[in-house]
Nucleic acid binder design. Structure first.
Lengths: 191, 191, 191, 191
DNA sequence: AATGAATGAGTTTTCATTCAT
DNA sequence: GATGAATGAAAACTCATTCAT
């Protein structure tokens, strides 16, 4: 007899398994079968819940993005000055909850998937726009019209550091990456 | 005697076709058959010359990297001051010869491939080390001990802009990306 | 729940089809697709159950060897004198259950496969050692120290007759082959 | 300018290379390209001289069989008594000129090829008939009407020992195999 | 709900064979 | 005569997806 309310548990398990699997192989050439096995369910069930492989991948990315958004939000709620707001966004990007080898691999693969998949592209645009907008608003009181420009550069730097950390031989160094960005920001806003 | 000296011609055609094909699909899920067809040869020939799919991909990336290195070198030869040297490296990264949609897609896919393929990783390390070293040398007369650090940040910014440009809806804007980096650099070295 | 317990049925069907296919072509240049079709399943399923072509081939041979061992065992259980034991082993080798054109073709191809495949060689060694040991034990009460030597010669004669029968134009004549060996044995032990 | 009289040299080199290649891989899954390379010529030339792969294989086997026939003939010419004649045939079968790992692998593969290839079968029949006839003639003065039967058994034993020696772990022991057969023969004819 | 049996399309890879030069 | 460039058919193998139970 099927237990009631299993669905959310299964979905979560499959999403976690997906990220773990991407982290383990380093690519999206991950089989639904392996994801399902890692989640302790059958491959059929994975399809049943998500529809298809791409949907599983996107659900996993949505989860990662949600975690990231939550982290940033938490930071913003404790920020009073504009500079603190900027730093909260940056810190959220490199908080350990997102900045694990698994998650970084998922992000990078997702970026590249956005080149070929329309739905991934759509999802990516949402994320990118929100990050840009967050940064822009935070920067405006500090640099006025340069805010847009600075937000773009900051976002690029963040993503570039993700790339480098993802490809580095040692464990991702969130602290170090964060300092890079904050130093850059402080230099730009002239603290 | 058979047509002699076809090999370099075929190899070049296959490499070009590979980059074009990656650009067209946006991913490395590109079939040897399609690459070969685009190059006007049979799939068998592609294997004959390169050995296998991964070898074709790596050969294509080596070609792209060589083009990039050539571009940077050309710039460095016309540079007299340290700042000019930095700018030459940056300009090389965004010169139209590398900074086309095709090539950017290849670069991004290559970065992600380095997560899962040992030979891609090896190749990537060589490229990354050279870029870092070039920037570091150029920065040293300007900022002394901060050179290493600044080189890392600059490299990350460059790669981040690649990522953003690759995912932007419009044609890649090398000029704009370049200005971003140069502005960043000038701000950091305090011109 | 899906149809359960299909696995043993499919495996048996695939093994039978493999032997039939080898018999039909006379070689191991048999495609997984053809085997699968003959077994009434898809080629994917054959891989699913066995892993790969070589595994299918080896599973088929293990089946043939098991049948042979069973036949010999049955004979031995009804044997009281040493000579009867020898004859039981010989009869088992040429019993109709093994000595059909199909099976002979499989054996011969298997022998030759053992020249190039380590796992086939391993399997062959097991079979050869068991046959030798069975014969040796049976011969010892009859010829003492000559048992080893005689076992080797008998085994060679059996395999040689397999070869000849396999290549003969008419249907394999197990009876005739058997008589050859038994006559040889009786002559050697001096009955 | 092509040297005159190169053809026989090329053919011989290709035949030797074929046997060596079969010995090295232990199977007939030998590529024309490898054979040609080993012989120091192009794959095109191999086809030019022999027509196709099967023709190369058959030419190699014809060569092996010719060597064997020569060996036997030489032995027969020095034989005076019937028993000496039998022994000459047996010795020829295990003379080092045929009984090398390479050659044995070729023989065994050839036997199995005869199951699926009509021309190999034809060739095999010629060889088998000749061996049988040689043995039969030699046996007749010794055992009269049992000659046919004894020839068949002797031929089977010879081939069985080939099989066993080909699959043994150590270097082929022609001497030992020969003794096995001669002992068998002497026992049968009652020396 | 959940399984896992089953499919079959799609991809890489290998090679005998052909042929222009 | 001789080359080796080029082809393309054939085969193994993988995997997303479907579906009966």
């Amino acid at each position: 007899m099927p237990k009631l309310g299993m669905e959310p548990i299964r979905r979560a398990a499959l999403i976690d398994a997906t990220i773990a699997e991407i982290g383990a192989t380093g690519s999206l050439d991950v089989t639904v079968g392996k994801i399902a096995r890692r989640a302790g369910v059958s491959s059929g069930l994975a399809h049943h819940y998500f529809g298809g492989k791409e949907d599983i991948l996107l659900a996993a990315m949505r989860h990662v993005m949600r975690e990231y958004a939550r982290e940033v939000l938490r930071g913003l709620q404790h920020s009073d000055t504009p500079l603190e707001r900027v730093e909260a966004i940056v810190k959220g990007s490199f908080a350990i909850s997102n900045f694990r080898a698994d998650t970084i691999a998922a992000w990078l693969n997702f970026y590249v998937l956005a080149l070929s998949s329309a739905s991934a592209r759509r999802l990516h645009r949402i994320y990118a726009a929100r990050l840009r907008s967050n940064l822009s608003h935070a920067f405006r009181p500090l640099v006025g019209d340069r805010a847009e420009d600075l937000a773009a550069r900051t976002a690029a730097l963040i993503d570039g550091l993700y790339l480098h950390q993802g490809l580095a031989q040692n464990t991702p160094d969130g602290e170090g990456a964060m300092r890079h960005v904050i130093q850059f920001v402080e230099n730009e806003v002239g603290v």
